[in-house]
Nucleic acid binder design. Sequence first.
RNA 1: GGAGAGAUGGCUGAGUGGUCGAAAGCGCCGCAUUGCUAAUGCGGUGUGGGUGUUGAAGCCCACCUCGGGUUCGAAUCCCGAUCUCUCCGCCA
Length: 423
Amino acid sequence: MLDVGFIRQETDLVRRALRAKGESADIDWFLRLDKDLRAVVTETEGLRARQNQLSPEIGRRKRAGEDADALLEEVSDLKAKQKQLNDRKDQLELDLRRILMRIPNLPADDVPVGHSDSDNAIVDTWGEPRTFEFEPKAHYDVGDALGMFHSDRAARISGSGFSLLTGALAQLERALWNYMLDIHTREHGYTEAAAPYLVRGTSLEGSGQLPKLEGDMYRCRDDDLWLIPTAEVPVTNIHRQEILTEDELPLRYAAFSPCFRRESGAAGTDTRGLTRMHQFHKVEMVAVTRPEDSDAELLRIRANAETILQRLDLPYRVVLLCTGDTSFASAKTFDLEAWAPGCGKWLEVSSISTFRDFQARRAEMRYRPAEGGKPRHVHTLNGSGLALPRVLVAILENYQREDGSVAIPDVLRPYMGWKTDIR
RNA sequence: GGAGAGAUGGCUGAGUGGUCGAAAGCGCCGCAUUGCUAAUGCGGUGUGGGUGUUGAAGCCCACCUCGGGUUCGAAUCCCGAUCUCUCCGCCA
């Protein structure tokens, strides 16, 4: 969330940013409630101060056997007034918070202004799309032919939007996430984290999914827990309500997790294959930095994610999302899109974002500067490193051969018992 | 699921109705002293908010897990919630 003082002072900037993101919030009403709140607080505290003055005096007089009736009367008067003001204060705070939690993060200055993905900027490409001597098949046809991809059975078990992989294909997915975690922890300096897959609502507020994305997630109502849509949620909340020391920063975590998404707004799209699932696996990178380091960290995470694609030798492009495509909590987001020659599509396999202090403010994550002074909010960032089913798709479609077999990328062979292909 | 115990500041740990934002110790910071280090002495050391000054000082309010209540007055009493721990049961 944004700082209330900032909204007060930079009102126009906030308005402009909201418009650029295609979001709306009643800033005027917010400011008015904010003003009312401060008036009420000032008045209540004055009454309270007076009461605090009277109490000891009442005690003294009672003990001395003197008359305290006049003071008691004044106190009961003060309390009655405070009660009224307090009700008003509670209501104002509730209303303000409701608005504040729905105001999105401001986009960074260098994010292109735009409404849809057609306004996104392609900032880099890597690799040459492979050429085939035959018509490359879509991954589901490749998997079907191998007898290792079972959409009909998955549907019988859980309905549409779920996948069932068997044999070498299931193994290949496990090889991929092991490989990714190994690279990030051994070469990129991340600490591996195994975090809960069920979280409380407060964690989701901390990372920014709630309240806005309530309908996109699975909720266990009996226990008031939610299935995580990404490991970002538990991992970003690791240091919730902590004051870190400056020398602990930056913190870098890499975590594998399943991700659960209702995809309620996407019903009917991408129904075939593995590109849009209610449940999928992902390796996620999360960083916590000093504010002055977060811009560099964003590029670092992006490079870490790109490393995986490069070593898998999968052609991809880097997209800088425009204001309208940048998510609620993000200030700036890069997507990595791998080329899938079978579907003929660029698949988003990673999304790398800086949230600046937006999540830190919600999750109350701060650090104390080395030279002392007030705690400051940290900056948080994350990036997929990478999302598995789509990487699997890219591998199946890029590494397929005319005879229906699939070559195993070199770097994964140690994880696949040194097999060279799947057939 | 059953029975019990507990939750205090960065940490340990006192405190059962007023003088407690909270003893003491540890840690940390500053100063002093010692030819360095160690040791010692003195002082300081939480967070959020209001007001103010348009990055001051000051003043005020709140916070002893959270939310209610009793009281002129609550860290202390009452009720509820959450979390932690122990034992039993169950279970991968």
